[in-house]
Design a binder for these strands. Structure first.
Lengths: 203, 203
DNA sequence: CGGCATCGTTTGACGAACAAACTAGTTTTG
DNA sequence: CAAAACTAGTTTGTTCGTCAAACGATGCCG
């Protein structure tokens, strides 16, 4: 292609913020920078995690669920910036894949607490390495210590934003925590209705 | 609400990466962090720039166009991660608002070069302050020097990504650059057809 | 002059996000 | 204790943005 378009001249510097430090008022690119980095992250991650039910989303959920106390779906949705309604079928698929389980909180039976299964933790461990590797690639333009620094600052900023979130509540209690898993696999819900799996062969 | 839900207990640490440095494998939150920050940025920006034709997008375009040589639409779209087809009506609206102008490159009449009008530059100057102020708010969780550092690193990462972009090519020449603006306001194109302003009353 | 490539525009379709209605369960109030 | 009010989760429908393909116009090259 362009086998005969030998044009050595290039756009000099129209890029929003190329040549940092050169133009004084050009450091208003935060949105652009984040969008570029995040998009690349997303691209690579989706192809790297294509075997997880919902790609990078599934990973986020799995990672958010695996460590401490099983959070409620609402709490999960809020942290991960995912709509409640989306969270529903996202968890449907993760559960179908045997990665997480929904258990009814005995203290408040409206609430489903999401916890990772053994298999889920195993998968997470494997996938996490892939994620780390991919992230390194995305930030390949930075040297190692700067990468680390960037991650750290981004995280601090994000945590601060989430904590200062308007609707974010002070009430997401754990009660006493289930302890044993003798709650039955929900049983409720899922009473028929079309599967909104999307993704599959549509039309 | 919850006027009487005095539950001091909180989720200890389910957040993907709260308490940084505590758990070794938890620094895989880059995607989450960026998503949170970017979303907040977007929210605030859209409300702060509601008077620009396409909000933060319009700002990006205006800012990318104002400094150096007028880029082609394709180059703009590539830099700003906007689809060609979207760029079309985005520029339609910016032009309608008198902020930019499309001029046919005399050297290659297929190409439209986008440049800011006088009014566009004025508006940009005003808006830029608003943007900076809003960004400070978004990064309020960081102290001032860290904010600056974060911006700087993010930009470096983004620039590196864009330069290493796969499809990004070495051919986006400027030729000799127009020089004078005696090209007439395109005239071509826009030959009837529905306005895809969307947005309006659909069905 | 005839094929091939590129830029910009238009059109169409698909998927994700958002909002609203509904059920089940819990808490509050008269 | 019963009714009202509220929350968690699911379901449904609508809307919006993004992406892919087709088209007209222009330029390049043999």
């Amino acid at each position: 292609m362009a086998s005969t378009t030998p044009e050595p001249a290039r756009l000099p510097d129209t890029r929003p913020g190329a040549d940092p430090g050169a133009d004084p008022g050009a450091d208003t690119n935060l949105g652009w920078s984040l969008a570029v980095v995040l998009r690349r992250w997303h691209e690579r991650m989706e192809s790297a995690l294509s075997d997880l039910p919902h790609g990078s989303r599934g990973y986020h959920v799995l990672a958010a669920v695996s460590p401490g106390e099983p959070p409620t779906q609402a709490a999960l949705a809020e942290r991960l910036l995912i709509d409640r309604s989306v969270m529903t079928y996202l968890l449907d698929d993760l559960e179908k894949a045997g990665l997480v389980r929904r258990r009814i909180d005995p203290g408040d039976r409206r609430v489903r607490r999401v916890c990772a299964t053994e298999h889920g933790r195993e998968v997470l461990a494997v996938v996490r390495e892939r994620v780390e590797h991919t992230e390194e690639q995305v930030l390949a333009g930075l040297d190692a210590p700067t990468r680390e620094l960037f991650r750290h600052i981004a995280q601090r900023a994000a945590v601060a934003i989430q904590e200062a979130s308007p609707a974010t509540d002070p009430c997401a209690a754990v009660r006493q925590v289930v302890g044993d898993g003798a709650e039955g696999p929900v049983g409720t819900a899922n009473r028929g209705g079309r599967r909104r799996t999307g993704r599959g062969t549509r039309n």
